[in-house]
């Protein structure tokens, strides 16, 4: 993972010699381990994000919220207060929203927090998340918080009331997050609400910038990191807030740089407009036909 280890904080790690990644060396675990990303060559130029602008920001909820990169962080209640505060401060500064079940003590950073509807009125928050039926009129964005399932029966009745959906693998669900994202993206488009209802997805399985990029290209506006933040910062669990904040900022900056590298390599200078749902930038390596149909992506070697 970018940005944490090594001599250059927040720099994407540089490596040498051939890849050891999945699917052909490491064992593939997820559908996205069979998905590769396009590189722009000859027909169009790639972009070098260190020298030319690549915009990584995305907007959620019709432009009411802005993320500096397509990333949302979720913090569990089992984490210590100092750790949570460190992460929240870093995310606030870096323009990344934090989903937090209990914001007590962090109200100051409320504009950077999504929290549960129970806290409506307790502070100024960026928005709320909860079960679709718990949607409450607060004047703030509300995200329907659901597990990874392709059963979208709940969607119709609440579509007019929600400004976003969080597909959270940590809530369970039997379907692959890639499939849920792709189908939900298409479902929202069919309803004509894709640009007003945001789609955030992720959870325990998200490992880094490559996963973020692939899920965004499959249709997510932003990808939620949970376990990977905890795991990456684990050695710091007992450290003080400012230490955690610094490392978390580096992690986010590193992720942002990796996302920009991938976008630039694909010849994309704007993630919000160009990558979200752009399955044309992806190809499947040896994925069966039925899964490819659910994802609407082409096979490696197809034009």
């Amino acid at each position: 993972m970018a940005g944490v280890v090594g001599r250059q904080p927040a720099e994407p790690p540089i490596v040498s010699m051939g890849s050891t990644g999945p699917p052909y060396v490491e064992e593939p675990f997820f559908i996205r381990d069979h998905i590769v990303i396009d590189g722009a060559q000859v027909t169009r130029p790639s972009i070098d994000p260190y020298r030319e602008p690549v915009e990584s920001h995305v907007y959620l909820c019709g432009g009411r919220l802005r993320l500096s990169m397509p990333v949302v962080v979720k913090l569990g209640h089992h984490l210590s207060n100092s750790f949570r505060e460190g992460v929240v401060r870093a995310c606030y500064c870096m323009g990344v929203l934090v989903m937090i079940d209990n914001p007590t003590g962090l109200e100051k950073y409320g504009e950077g927090l999504l929290t549960e509807p129970a806290y409506v009125g307790d502070g100024v928050y960026a928005g709320y998340y909860g079960e679709p039926s718990r949607c409450r009129e607060s004047g703030k964005p509300f995200f329907a918080h659901v597990g990874a399932s392709t059963d979208f029966l709940w969607l119709g009745p609440v579509l007019e009331h929600v400004s976003g959906i969080v597909v959270d693998e940590d809530l369970g669900g039997v379907d692959d997050v890639e499939v849920v994202v792709s189908l939900l993206d298409r479902e929202l488009r069919r309803h004509g609400v894709r640009n007003s209802v945001s789609l955030v997805a992720g959870g325990w399985s998200v490992r880094g910038a490559d996963d973020v990029f692939k899920l965004v290209a499959l249709g997510a506006d932003a990808v939620m990191l949970s376990t990977c933040v905890e795991k990456t910062l684990e050695p710091l669990l007992t450290h003080d807030t400012s230490h955690v904040r610094e490392k978390m900022e580096n992690l986010l900056l590193g992720l942002q740089r990796e996302i920009k590298l991938l976008a630039g390599a694909a010849g994309v200078s704007n993630i919000f407009n160009t990558i979200v749902g752009n399955r044309e930038l992806l190809r499947a390596v040896e994925l069966p036909r039925d899964i490819r149909a659910l994802l609407s992506i082409k096979l490696a070697g197809e034009g």
């Binding site: 540089i14 010699m17 590189g39 990796e258 590298l261 070697g301």
Partner: peptide, 23 residues
């Protein structure tokens, strides 16, 4: 994909491009 390099960002090396035997 998988070809050697003297230096490359890991995230790009492991995710961008297709295997040559398919191409």
């Amino acid at each position: 994909q998988g070809a050697g390099t003297g230096a490359a960002p890991e995230v790009v090396r492991n995710n961008v491009g297709l295997p040559v035997e398919i191409a």
